[in-house]
Amino acid sequence: MGASILHITNGDSTTNYLKKLKFSGEFITWREMLCEGKTTTDVGSEAFWKNRFDFFKSSYKVSKQKFIDYTLKEYRSLCNKKNQKEIVLWFEYDLFCQINMIAVISWLKRYRKGYHISLVCSGKVGNSKLMYALPELNENQIHSHFKNRIELSQDDIEYADYIWQLYCSDSPLQLERVYKTKTNSTFTYLASAVEAHLKRYPSIENGLNSVENSILRTAVQEKPKTKNQFIGQLLKDEDVYGYGDLQYENKLNELGKLFHSFNPVKLSKIGKNVLENQLNFYGQIRNDISYLGGSKKYSFLYHNKSEKLFQITS
């Protein structure tokens, strides 16, 4: 593990864990959640970061100073690191990580052409059915993952960049076609992440997407006594998305009319009717400012039985 390695990690927990285990090299933590809010293909440009700040400010009340300190300073540090012989990417299996990963690879394709780039991606370990985050791996497992890291070919880099371009387009329909037909074995978890992404468009059945319907089902099935317990259960159950507590808190605010109370957690009459597909909530929840990648969330509908997306035409 030479000092000429630059590690780009998926978050502070991974960075701190690798440093604790005495991994040598330099570290950059990619502090973004590109699975939420509008994205554009030009990762790192002034327009890209302005767009991202606008999203964080409006959706999460993030101040400009916090955005600069937490995200932009780390990105600028990445821009200044050009001397390492190898760049190792550390990302996980979930949607949150996979979208960040392909965005980083798109940036590397443009600004670090010819560099030796490799990938460590956690998920399944051995025959276990459980999925593991990087900090959940023990010391031997994390070293084994590093030793067996995958060197990305130019074709791999081109593929990841292509999926990123499609993710940022104003329509998800081509992404829907491509991810099934043009697969890449290097990125073990990317197809399942894209599938989870497509299910985030509102369903034809009741106007809520897969995440939102799962929130309602969990409320009914688990009967959480408090909001914190509710969010904890969602974090445990919905690991394919990789969402954090702030994202679920935001979701619950959006779905407020569907709940009678959060302490204890109970659906309202409207919420029960929506969950049972007796009422379509699309008209009440629809807006023109919600984006998934480059496309407007409410301009497309997901049909669960056929597992296909349809564009809404005016």
Score class of each variant (00 low, 15 high):
2 G>P: 00
3 A>N: 14
3 A>E: 15
3 A>Q: 08
5 I>H: 14
7 H>I: 03
10 N>H: 08
15 T>Y: 05
15 T>Q: 08
16 N>S: 13
20 K>H: 14
26 E>V: 07
27 F>T: 00
28 I>L: 02
29 T>R: 02
31 R>V: 10
35 C>F: 09
37 G>S: 02
37 G>Q: 02
41 T>K: 12
41 T>L: 01
42 D>R: 05
45 S>D: 07
45 S>K: 04
48 F>Y: 15
48 F>S: 09
50 K>C: 08
54 D>R: 14
64 K>L: 07
64 K>C: 04
66 K>N: 09
66 K>C: 03
68 I>E: 15
70 Y>I: 01
72 L>R: 04
76 R>M: 12
78 L>F: 11
78 L>E: 08
81 K>P: 00
83 N>T: 09
85 K>P: 07
86 E>S: 03
90 W>M: 04
91 F>D: 09
93 Y>I: 05
95 L>F: 11
95 L>W: 13
103 A>Q: 08
103 A>K: 02
105 I>H: 07
107 W>I: 01
109 K>V: 06
116 H>E: 08
116 H>R: 06
116 H>I: 05
118 S>I: 08
125 V>W: 07
126 G>L: 10
126 G>F: 02
128 S>H: 14
131 M>N: 11
131 M>G: 01
137 L>K: 09
138 N>S: 13
140 N>P: 02
143 H>W: 15
144 S>M: 11
148 N>K: 15
150 I>G: 01
150 I>K: 13
154 Q>E: 14
159 Y>T: 05
166 L>N: 05
168 C>L: 06
168 C>K: 08
172 P>Y: 09
176 E>W: 15
178 V>E: 12
180 K>A: 04
182 K>F: 09
186 T>L: 03
186 T>M: 03
187 F>H: 05
187 F>P: 05
193 A>Q: 07
197 H>L: 15
199 K>S: 10
200 R>A: 00
201 Y>S: 04
203 S>R: 15
205 E>M: 02
207 G>T: 05
214 S>K: 08
221 Q>M: 13
226 T>G: 10
226 T>W: 10
230 F>Q: 05
235 L>M: 13
237 D>R: 10
239 D>S: 11
240 V>C: 08
242 G>H: 04
247 Q>S: 06
250 N>S: 13
250 N>C: 01
251 K>I: 10
252 L>P: 08
254 E>L: 02
256 G>Q: 12
261 S>D: 06
262 F>I: 01
264 P>V: 13
267 L>E: 10
268 S>H: 11
268 S>W: 01
270 I>A: 07
270 I>F: 08
275 L>H: 14
276 E>T: 11
277 N>F: 14
278 Q>V: 06
279 L>A: 03
280 N>F: 04
287 N>C: 13
288 D>H: 07
294 G>I: 05
296 K>P: 00
297 K>A: 00
297 K>D: 00
302 Y>W: 15
302 Y>M: 03
303 H>P: 00
303 H>V: 06
305 K>D: 15
305 K>V: 10
306 S>G: 04
307 E>Q: 06
309 L>K: 01
313 T>A: 00
314 S>Q: 01
314 S>Y: 11
